[in-house]
């Protein structure tokens, strides 16, 4: 084949006129044993009537429909209402129901950040995350880099997020290893007095509920 653009990979399928490779299709990646197994198990569960393809799709839609906004509403309410905050710290799933939020079937604990204690979440073993409440985790949360370094050098990782924690504050990393999921209740920023619940919720980010950021002054 002629080489119109100075490199030698072949264009067997069509004439690709650009000097960069095509973005690979999903199917071009390696099909690993575990991917085959996951597909086979899913198909078996459907074939055996454990759940239907429709139920599977609806579950995925339900997770995809979740967003940090739901957690943010809960944080904002907790900032404004000490009684709600107490209930949130007791049982996130029950407190969510008060706001007509479905936090899903897995128990979630809220952990409060204070001037003396900064909490953050990691799952060193896999990628446990409160996805039924605030949606799917960011890719970095699942990376080996975050999972290994957040537990062993949290201040360095926090600094990479632009989060500098004072030397006299305790940094506490929670490893989500078992049956619970966590959300951080960030500190209410200074200057937020007088804001209503909606305006406060708009300040609350996904990363602040993971604990890798703090919410700056308004």
């Amino acid at each position: 084949m002629s080489d119109p653009h100075g490199h030698d990979h072949s264009h067997a399928d069509d004439d690709w006129p650009y000097p960069h490779p095509k973005q690979p299709d999903l199917e071009d990646g390696e099909l690993t044993e575990h991917m085959v197994m996951a597909e086979a198990v899913e198909q078996l569960l459907i074939d055996k009537g454990i759940f239907s393809a429709d139920e599977m799709r609806r579950m995925l839609e339900q997770i995809d429909a979740k967003s940090p906004a739901e957690g943010a509403r809960m944080v904002a309410r907790a900032w404004l209402d000490p009684d709600f905050k107490a209930r949130l710290l007791e049982d996130v799933n029950a407190a969510a129901k008060e706001l007509n939020i479905d936090a899903g079937p897995i128990p979630i604990l809220a952990i409060e950040n204070t001037h003396a204690l900064h909490n953050a979440i990691v799952c060193t073993l896999c990628s446990c995350y409160p996805k039924f409440l605030i949606g799917l985790p960011p890719d970095w949360y699942k990376s080996r880099n975050y999972r290994s370094r957040m537990i062993s050098e949290p201040r360095a990782v926090l600094a990479e997020f632009g989060t500098m924690i004072a030397d006299d504050v305790e940094v506490r990393v929670h490893d989500s290893t078992a049956d619970l999921r966590y959300m951080i209740l960030p500190m209410r920023p200074q200057g937020a007095e007088g804001l209503d619940e909606e305006a406060l919720a708009a300040l609350v980010t996904r990363d602040s509920m993971i604990g890798v950021t703090v919410i700056d002054k308004v």
């Binding site: 949290p154 305790e170 929670h174 619970l180």
Partner: peptide, 25 residues
Amino acid sequence: VKFQQSDLWSDYAGQEQDTAVVEVM
């Protein structure tokens, strides 16, 4: 279970009061 970070990592570079909390069965 709460651990002092300096007990988990001999080269821990953070502050003495830093901790890790892990769910353990």
